[in-house]
């Protein structure tokens, strides 16, 4: 049993950024907006978080800066797609490229600088329980935040009026407008929440996962997060399963490389992405589940007639 502790810790750490970013995108997509700029928002969040933590020496300020960084890019996306009614797919792709470039520019001075690191939580007693203790009670606070956020987002979407309005706007924006709901405002808030989560996920990478800054350190995690949202059929609970699965596959790839299995390392690095494709194909077969939960207005622009 002791041998399991290491792998489980790695899996949880690897899945946290995916969970955070996917959760934000889930809320955005529930409002009917498809933001393909997750990767870009994560990169900007990562560099902003690292820079702020490094300059002030305070990791918590880094976390805040990461959230704000993601939100600024999301604001830009909202301005383009909701304010100026540009195509959501094209704008999202452009934003990813822009975010990656911008983050490299901002981060130029920080390459190779050691980061301040984030302290792990330590609860005397609980954290010392064998196996369970280190997994459940000795993570960094952002991991707990991610899990709490899953519950909060689920509660918001399915148990509150705000969540009902969010789903309504994503399902049928014409009707929501006819009933007097502010479609654009709801969508803008959802986009900003998505940006905050993506920024936080980026901050997790540069402050916790590997406490340093390297350009392109998001390494496609934004895209996996996007796939996860579809995998989860826009349900927060299933997001957890998906994130853990991808965390496990990433771990497996590293592990197999480590023990020197006779497969070229490039193939092993492909593993998480191959899994993404396979899972998407499998998920698309269950059409009933997708039909009920897919936001019907996903990716469609809305212009009120006035």
């Amino acid at each position: 049993m002791e041998g399991l502790e290491g792998p489980l810790l790695t899996i949880i750490t690897a899945s946290t950024p995916l969970l955070l970013a996917a959760l934000g995108e889930l809320v955005t997509e529930r409002s009917g907006v498809l933001n393909l700029g997750v990767e870009g928002m994560m990169a900007v969040g990562a560099v902003c978080g690292f820079a702020a933590a490094n300059l002030t020496g305070m990791p918590m300020l880094g976390v805040l800066a990461a959230i704000l960084g993601g939100m600024v890019i999301a604001f830009l996306f909202g301005l383009l797609t909701l304010g100026l009614v540009t195509n959501q797919v094209a704008s999202g792709l452009a934003l990813t490229l822009f975010g990656l470039g911008l983050s490299a520019l901002i981060g130029d001075a920080f390459v190779g600088v050691p980061g301040p690191g984030m302290p792990k939580l330590y609860i005397p007693g609980l954290s010392d329980i064998p196996l369970v203790g280190r997994i459940f009670f000795a993570q960094d606070f952002m991991t707990y935040l991610a899990w709490a956020l899953v519950i909060a987002v689920w509660y918001f979407i399915f148990r509150t009026r705000g969540g009902l309005v969010l789903r309504a706007v994503g399902d049928n924006h014409v009707s929501a407008h006819a009933l007097g709901y502010k479609v654009i405002r709801v969508r803008f808030l959802a986009v900003l929440f998505g940006g905050a989560c993506a920024g936080l996920a980026g901050g997790y990478l540069s402050l916790v996962y590997t406490p340093q800054w390297t350009p392109n350190m998001t390494a496609g995690r934004g895209w996996i997060a996007l796939a996860l949202v579809v995998f989860a059929a826009w349900l927060p609970g299933r997001l957890v399963v998906g994130a853990l699965l991808f965390g496990a596959v990433s771990y497996l790839a590293l592990y197999l490389q480590g023990i020197g299995v006779g497969i070229p390392s490039q193939f092993l690095s492909m593993l998480p992405y191959l899994t993404t494709i396979v899972v998407l194909v499998v998920i698309s077969r269950n059409r009933t589940l997708l039909r009920i939960n897919t936001p019907a207005c996903l990716g469609q622009s809305f212009v009120p007639d006035r």
Partner: peptide, 20 residues
């Protein structure tokens, strides 16, 4: 009462009514 129903297909009857 709208001609082209202003209902939300993915929501329940009660949720649809709550929205209005």
């Amino acid at each position: 009462v709208f001609q082209h129903f202003s209902l939300f297909d993915a929501l329940t009857v009660a949720e649809n009514i709550a929205l209005a």
